[in-house]
Design a protein around this nucleic acid. Sequence first.
DNA 1: CTGAAAGCGCTTACAG
DNA 2: CTGAAAGCGCTTACAG
Lengths: 336, 336
Amino acid sequence: MRDVAAAVGVSVKTVSNVVNATGQVNEATVRAVRAAVEKLGYRPNPLARGLNSRTTDTVALALPGLGYGYCAPLAAAVFDLAEAEGISVVMEPTGGDRERELEVLRNRGGLSDGVLLMPTALTARDLKDPPSPGPTVLLGSRRVESPFDSVASQDTVAAEAAVRLLLGRGASRVVLLGGERKAGGDSAAAVRTDGYRHALTAAGRKFDPSLVVETPRSFRDDGYAAIARLLTPLPGGETPFDAVLALEEPLAHGALHALREAGRDVPGRVQVVAFGNDEDAEYSWPSLTTVQADVRTMARRALDLLTARVREGARPRSHVEVPLTIIERESTFSYA
Amino acid sequence: MRDVAAAVGVSVKTVSNVVNATGQVNEATVRAVRAAVEKLGYRPNPLARGLNSRTTDTVALALPGLGYGYCAPLAAAVFDLAEAEGISVVMEPTGGDRERELEVLRNRGGLSDGVLLMPTALTARDLKDPPSPGPTVLLGSRRVESPFDSVASQDTVAAEAAVRLLLGRGASRVVLLGGERKAGGDSAAAVRTDGYRHALTAAGRKFDPSLVVETPRSFRDDGYAAIARLLTPLPGGETPFDAVLALEEPLAHGALHALREAGRDVPGRVQVVAFGNDEDAEYSWPSLTTVQADVRTMARRALDLLTARVREGARPRSHVEVPLTIIERESTFSYA
DNA sequence: CTGAAAGCGCTTACAG
DNA sequence: CTGAAAGCGCTTACAG
């Protein structure tokens, strides 16, 4: 910048003014400076700029990992939207590890202005009384209480809608694959399980705990094993359920596999719905009816909340809820 | 930092020395400083540090998008490996746009020490004579000539192996779905098409251009349309090919759909292999034999190359080639 | 082993 | 409309 100033014969201040469109500058001077900038290939140093202005136009995106739930499409949406506003995003993979999630909160993502965090391992306490309440927006499916702004997908409502859909299409015994038996949790699984219960209650059906199947993880094999086990005592015969709501998409693919192997037609004998945002849902056979998060809207709101927080500092806490959408495909009956 | 220095009663320099483990410091002083750091919750400002040391421990990752080829798993690998070394990575989505790719090269990713770029729209000229040869590592499937270090997946070799596999399993007419008819290109499609030709030549078969099917894009629908068109003139009858090598995985899923619809058994009548790193390959029916890039190794080598380049500046250019792996699944005959 | 000074490349008041 | 000075929070020679 000093070189540019020298070349034009003005002070650094003036160059700074031109580059940042700050203050008033004579039009001729502007042109001269612009020309010199071009000629010398000058690029402002973002570090020096940030050191003063205390703002780097960078946000940290702390996700457990790209393979987790709808993280991949959510991250893609954040990258896109941020890029459009000239904001850089630095990835902060937490691996679903509490220590790393805490570290994100403490360290505020290094050189970023704020952080977008999807908490997974953080306890309710951690969130309620966090180490440092810097500009932070929580996002995800969890139900949390904290001093931070947040953007949550309405998983309870969506799960309820999914079960209602299944009941409406004739199902009466819906397996909740990957659900959480114990009530009162705040994880994505717990939140969705609540919706499952609500739907049954609202429909006047009774809740059968044996239909809530917990799985060690949410991989395809877990879904396969769980459904295969339910069918084992009844080779070819009875099917103790007529629908499956899988709380993570890979579980559903495993379930489809187990059902196919056991000769249970989908959706004829068993209808299947899954939470998921992957394209896989279209590729499977039959294609899968899914409940998908509106990641684009979530990214949009989260980014807006964060930039507002960075700009304004003290401002009332916002909590945004974003609905999910049910995409009907071949694994459920079409509404007759 | 000044506060810490004041609290302990030493100079900033000493605090700096302790924090960075630079120079020699009295052990008692070290302890005192550490205590004060802890007590005051001091965190070094990475901007100020970077302004001096001219290094931010940040790299930019410029990819066309998470949905493109093996970008998603590659990005995940880069995030993981970088995190393990305390390097931050800022995403720079280019959208496969030449201007944005050029911008990455010019601007060197803002506050990052260097950039990992997967060029897609950049021309051979752009790469040969780039705007600014800062620390940069090119990565991807393209065959490029440039002053930069690079990490390339050996797509030609892999395509050749895939065709050899098909021929070895009895195929004689292999459709190349998403191939590039025109020779001499340097895109991923062109590079893979070369392998296809090589394999045929090596096996003494003749190259039939009608089997090279170009597709407007690489989506599922493109694959579906292309294969459906090939089968249209022959309803239920002849099948003018007995294998498909799809150059992008979605194309293969579309192809499977078209084949299923036309009643052509896979792999009985037609065997299918696809380039791809997605888990979708396992979920489809039948599951898909794929050629997958070793993204972890690519990420590892690219990061190593970049940090070496950042550290050393002038050093001979490195070009690393990483092999791909064929994962056999149900869409091809098992080797009898 | 430790300190005082200069400086990284910008921006922010403060003058004019 | 423009400039000279101070300063952002560190590190880098240079002394001692």
